[in-house]
Structure formats: structure tokens, C-alpha cells
Design a protein around this nucleic acid. Structure first.
Length: 470
RNA sequence: GGCCCCGUCGUCCAGUGGCCUAGGACGCCGGCCUUUCAAGCCGGAAACGCGGGUUCGAAUCCCGUCGGGGCUGCCA
């Protein structure tokens, strides 16, 4: 699910929750270029991850069948034919090749490229005869002309479009499949949709949908066209801007709460100067009419920051649960009970310094590694005159600590620093690298405490050997 | 090209005629704190696209202009 789709879904959901309405999820799968099953699974996975539950629709059911357009082709066909019967639509015998050619010619001549309506005047009896003889035809909607569609968009305000600029669009393809316009408008009518909130890219199609709805004898929905989400270059957000799929963010270690909060701020803001907003608060304050009219650039650095905020706001237990699959993936194996216990002890320290759940594994792997890998760059960074003395003294000092816990370890190492006349930075970094394998790690004393004396001493000893053999 | 939408710091928002010497957040820069990295704290640079009106007064209203985006398919 594209993040833009996610944002649209979120706004629909917030509006439904705010107004006590019904949030319906229906699958628009009239395009058979795409793999419908995959497309649907991806959408539903995105919605579930974001926590946007639906009252009616795919999976949960409701009074209108499967909520999948691909299951309703017969209904759309009937609607199209009925429209032809009532002379609100007509059969068009122009072939796609002809249309393409005319479009090209029109473009070359500087003329508007839309369909010229040449089949509109074919007498119905003739059209039926041609169809009877096997000639392929599509069904086009007869856009009322002259005419104008005016509507009050909840976010854009008054919109007025002259039908002069709206051509007779296809309702039913020559192979009998409906177009998006037919299918979704029919669904909106059949499902008694009161509000349609969608991307601004569909604004120019709205006169079509409204006219179609009227031709169907129904009352049009209230529309709200949401501003588009742009990439950092100001163009519509697409694959080349990086991760644009909601589900990609799951694996990248983002929390759905952060994504939802971030998305909610793309085109909308709660009252006041708040940035971190709970979902409950968003529901309470949300309103389509206060959605901004201008497009928003998707700025990942703000999402990243927000993710860190949400990670830090997790309870200790929640954090462990959220991090668990990432730790397992990072280690490449399932951890044992005692290992999880150790993880639970270090977790609060790690939680404070992580922005993405994917960072957790690398930060704690030193706790579970039999043979610690020492990062070469880190090792190089701590080399100096004092290293050998530090390592040696530390082994002695730590060897005689009577209770192996954070406080005793700290006291012992501070004493060591004094003896050697070193500041903490100089004296502790070599130990950090020796024990955790990197210059970047959770706090050293606690790490040592959790690791246990034996492992710490053997790692320090090993580092000493490395010095000697070097 | 035509039609439509939009134009406040780099980015997301606040601002709906005087409270604006334009506010918050992210990012950026500097400092503090500090056992690393983060986090945290303090400070800083940074915007009303432009030109005309209207008005005692305009970021806020009107017009124009420039700029950006969308649509212009038997895609959605």
C-alpha cells in the first residue's frame, strides 16, 4: 500500500470515527494488469498494521456482498446497458487504435485530445445491428452538453467544471469489463456512500462521477479531495523517492503509531502546537474541512524522529515485544530463555537510544555471541599508549570485585582510572571495544554486569592477546 | 496546448485584517551534560513568490503575474 493510499485511508478512518460513521473497505480491482490477489493482500496488510479497522467490507462482510469489484462485473454491465437504454450512454465502435491515432493527430494540431463523440449520434437501432453482427463496442457515457458540474468539496471548497472539457468517457470496455469510473460510482450508489475522501488526482474525474450518479437517479456523495503527497523533489511521491510502500516500513523497524501520527500531519494538524498526537486525540479533533489544500512533501527525517519518540514512549514490556522479531532476525536464530532474560535486562538501556527497531539486534548481539566479533575500525580507534595497561589493570580490578553488579563494577573501574591517571573517555573506550566489539554500545558497566564476570574477563584477556600478537 | 488545484522557514504545520519585530515541530549549526552512541537541556541561522489594488492597517481580501502540481487512456 502506497503511503498516499495509507494517508487517504487514515483520513477516511478518522472522519468515520469522528462522526460515528461507517468505514468501508472495498477493493477496486478492475484493472487486470495488476495481480488482484497480491494487490488486495498488500492493502489489507497495510490497513491492519496501521490499526485502521473497518466496519464493513472485504473480510468483515456487510450487506453488499464481497466488496470486491471483480465480483460485480455483471452488475456493472447491467448498469451500463440500462444507461444505454435510457439514452444516457451509447455504444462506441471506435477501436483503441483509431482513438490513439486521432489523439495523436489532435495533439499535433494543437486540439484538445479528448474523445470527439463521433459515435454519440449513431442511431440505437444501427448500433444494435452492428453489435449483432459481431462488431466490438464499448459503452460511453453521454456527458450532458452543454452543461456544468458544480460541487462543494469539503477541502477545496466550491469547484466548477464546464462539461466542454470533459469528454464522453468509457463505462464498459469492449471486453465487457467496467472502467474504474463505472465500477466505483455504481458502488458508491449501491453502498450508499455518503462521503468520498480521495486523492486530488481524482478531482478532474469528479464531474464524471457526479453526472453518472445523477443519471443513475441517485444523490451524489459529499466529496473531499485530499492534497497529494509529494517526494522531496516536489513531484508526486513514487518509487524513485525510496520507500513508498507502507509495508516496507514494517521491516525497516518503524512503529505503526509513528507512521499513523506522521501521516495524520500530512495535510492536517490538531489545534495548537502539538506534534505528537495520540490516535484518540486525532479522532476527537479530526475534520475534513480543516485539511490543508496544498500538497505535502513526505519528509522521512521527521518520520524517523517521530519513530524514536514512539519507541521511547513504549513501556519496557512493549518494547521487548516489539523488538523481539528484529532481534531474532538479526541473530539469525531463536534465542534461549536465559538469553531473552538478559535481553530484558539490557532492553531499557537500548530503548532510550534506538530510532528503528532494526537497530536493536546489532546493539545487543554482543550479549549472545560465543565468539565476539570486534569491529576493526573501532579497535583501531582505541589504540594508543595506554591500551595495554588499561586492559591489564582492568582484568585485575574486575577480578577482585566482590559483588558483580553495576555499582561495584563502576567503583572498581573508576579506581582503575585514577591509578592510571586516565579520564573516562580514554580509559573506558578500550574496554568497551574489548567487551562489546564496538565503540558504540549500551552503557558499559551495565553491559558488563549482564554479561557476567567470566565472559567479561575472557574478552578482556582475548583483547590483550590481540595486542601482543599484533 | 487546454482544464483544474495550489503557493508562509529546506520540510510539515499554526496564522482566517490589527495580538506578527510571523509561532511550533523535524532537519541544520553552536554550546551544555556525558563512560561511547543516543536521549535531554540551552542558544542560533532560516519563510509570508512577485506586482498592483482594497483598507487607517494586510501573511490574511481582490486582480494580475510568475512558479509548482494534477488531469487530459477501452489505467486507477
Amino acid at each position: 500500500m502506497h503511503v498516499g493510499t495509507g494517508r487517504t485511508a487514515l483520513f477516511n478512518w478518522l472522519y468515520a470515527k469522528h462522526t460515528g460513521g461507517t468505514f468501508i473497505v472495498r477493493i477496486d480491482d478492475t484493472d487486470d494488469e495488476r495481480n488482484a490477489a497480491e494487490f488486495e493482500a498488500d492493502i489489507l496488510a497495510g490497513l491492519r498494521w496501521l490499526g485502521l479497522d473497518w466496519d464493513e467490507g472485504v473480510g468483515v462482510g456487510g450487506p453488499h456482498g464481497t466488496y470486491r469489484q471483480s465480483d460485480r462485473y455483471e452488475r456493472y454491465r447491467q448498469v451500463a446497458l440500462e444507461l444505454v437504454e435510457r439514452e444516457a450512454a451509447y455504444f462506441c465502435f471506435c477501436t483503441p487504435a483509431e482513438l490513439a491515432k486521432r489523439r495523436e493527430e489532435a495533439a499535433a494540431a494543437g486540439q484538445p485530445p479528448g474523445y470527439d463523440g463521433r459515435c454519440r449520434t449513431i442511431p440505437i437501432s444501427e448500433a444494435i445491428a452492428r453489435r449483432g453482427s459481431g462488431e466490438a463496442s464499448a459503452v460511453r457515457f453521454k456527458m450532458p452538453r452543454p452543461g456544468v458540474t458544480e460541487f462543494d468539496d469539503l477541502v477545496k471548497g466550491k469547484i466548477r467544471i464546464d462539461h466542454e472539457h470533459v469528454d464522453d468517457f468509457v463505462l464498459l470496455r469492449s471486453d465487457g469489463r467496467p472502467t474504474y469510473h463505472l465500477a466505483s460510482t455504481t458502488d458508491d450508489v449501491d453502498y450508499e456512500i455518503s462521503h468520498v475522501a480521495r486523492g486530488e488526482d481524482l478531482l478532474p474525474s469528479t464531474p464524471r462521477h457526479i453526472q453518472l450518479t445523477m443519471a443513475l437517479g441517485a444523490k451524489e456523495a459529499t466529496y473531499a479531495h485530499l492534497p497529494l503527497i509529494l517526494g522531496t523533489d516536489g513531484k508526486r511521491l513514487s518509487k524513485r523517492h525510496g520507500a513508498t510502500g507502507v509495508t516496507e516500513y514494517i521491516e525497516a523497524g518503524y512503529l505503526p503509531q509513528a507512521m499513523v501520527n506522521y501521516l495524520s500531519l500530512l495535510g492536517w494538524s490538531p489545534a495548537g502546537d502539538v506534534t505528537i498526537v495520540s490516535l484518540a486525540e486525532s479522532i476527537r479533533l479530526f475534520d475534513l474541512e480543516s485539511v490543508s489544500t496544498n500538497p505535502a512533501v513526505f519528509d522521512q527525517s521527521k518520520l524517523d524522529w517521530m519513530n524514536g519518540e514512539y519507541i521511547r514512549s513504549l513501556s519496557a514490556v512493549e518494547f521487548v515485544e516489539a523488538a523481539r522479531p528484529f532481534v531474532t532476525a538479526s541473530m539469525g536464530r531463536e534465542l534461549g530463555t536465559d538469553e531473552w532474560e538478559r535481553f530484558g535486562r539490557i532492553a531499557p538501556l537500548v530503548q532510550e537510544r534506538t530510532k528503528f527497531l532494526t537497530e536493536v539486534g546489532p546493539q545487543v548481539r554482543f550479549l549472545f555471541a560465543d565468539e565476539l566479533e570486534i569491529d576493526p575500525a573501532s579497535w583501531a580507534k582505541v589504540q594508543g599508549d595506554a591500551v595495554e595497561a588499561v586492559l591489564e589493570t582492568a582484568v585485575t580490578a574486575l577480578g577482585s570485585v566482590d559483588t558483580w553488579d553495576h555499582d561495584h563494577i563502576e567503583r572498581s573501574l573508576r579506581t582503575m582510572l585514577e591509578q592510571l591517571g586516565l579520564n573516562a573517555r580514554k580509559g573506558l573506550q578500550p574496554l568497551r571495544v574489548a567487551v562489546t566489539g564496538s565503540t558504540v554500545s549500551p552503557p558499559l558497566f551495565e553491559s558488563m554486569a549482564i554479561l557476567g564476570r567470566d565472559v567479561v574477563l575472557s574478552r578482556l584477556e582475548r583483547a590483550r592477546q590481540m595486542l601482543i600478537s599484533a
